[in-house]
Amino acid sequence: MRISNKMALLTAALVMSSVSGCTTASQGDASAQSPATAPASSASEQDGVNEEARALLPQSMRDKGTLVMATDPTYPPFEYFDTDNKTVIGWDVDMGNVLASSLGLKAQYVPATFDTILPGLASNKYDAGMSAFNVTEERQKVVDFVPYISGGSGMAVLPGNPAKLSMTAASLCGKKIAAQKGTHESLDILPTMSEECTGSGEHAIDQAVFPTQTDANLALLSGRVDGVMADSIPLSYQGTLAENKFELAAGGDYEPRLSGIALNKESGLRPAITAAMKAIVQSKTYSDINKRWGIPSGSSITADQISE
């Protein structure tokens, strides 16, 4: 997709960070203290309130009037800071705006590091986690999910893939591979593939875990790791933002799976958000948001994929 002026400025910031060796980790920690409220998109205003879904909201949420959503703004195109370094934008923000508006609520986004969001939900610090969470069995033991998109993992490599990496254990044995802390890639996929390596007599994967996706990407650009494992959609988009200084390794998505909104199991929000999301994924607004952020059509889901 074409890079807008905002994206070009972000690209410059990423390149400058890679040159100076700086990361956004400290910025992310600081910004996590101050919520950023984003205005509802014009699409959400046009769709109006889904009265049937709103009726399923707990009375306490209707009285509060604001849906507080935690997000890790280091993961374009799903969530990242705009050029003012304060306003969170991205696919999740657009979708969250539509979701909140359909429930007659205002959307409020709280920047947070990815691995702190689920504990924050458990302690009722947030109403929802809107940060491209993969739906996994382990996470479902802790929180509820309402799916909104599908996708798999991919491998970011330097142009031309000099290390000849792919989403196979055999190509990663003995290599240094980065992932973001708390992600499915760092917790499940990389450890499993590393065990495959050692089980076949090869060297284990040298797993480098970073607090933010930006840190992991910068490690690749600076030559500190051989590759970065993450969701394929963000990796592809982030490579474009970085002026194609890294790219996705060839091959299809690894283990395509659902991603969605994370909710405290005791919040009572799941019925309302499920009903609202079922209507949204069947609307033109859903396809418009996907197109705006370069989401492949194959990543769209249907209402049937959202369980009650």
Rank of each mutant, 00 (worst) to 15 (best):
S194E: 06
L248V: 07
M1R: 15
D72F: 03
G90P: 00
S153R: 00
G294H: 01
T37N: 14
R224F: 01
Q282S: 08
E266P: 04
L172M: 15
A163K: 13
S307L: 05
S300P: 04
S166W: 04
A25H: 12
S153T: 00
G104Y: 12
I205V: 07
M167V: 11
A170P: 14
P296W: 06
R292S: 09
V228C: 03
T198E: 00
Y148V: 02
M130W: 15
T74S: 03
F114E: 00
S131A: 15
V225N: 00
L235Y: 02
T136E: 15
D82K: 11
K86W: 07
H203K: 02
P256C: 08
V143M: 06
D29A: 14
K125F: 10
L258Y: 09
D92T: 02
S232F: 11
A132I: 12
E185C: 00
T183C: 03
Q207Y: 01
P35C: 13
K64P: 00
G96D: 04
S283Q: 12
V49F: 09
I3Q: 02
D226H: 08
N85K: 05
A219M: 01
D82A: 15
Q140T: 08
G96H: 04
K125M: 10
S166F: 04
T11M: 11
D84W: 05
A276S: 09
G199H: 03
G65N: 10
V228L: 02
W91E: 05
P256G: 07
L190W: 01
K291L: 11
V228F: 03
P39E: 12
V228E: 00
P296N: 04
L57H: 09
I306M: 08
S200F: 09
V143I: 10
E266Q: 11
S150G: 09
D82G: 12
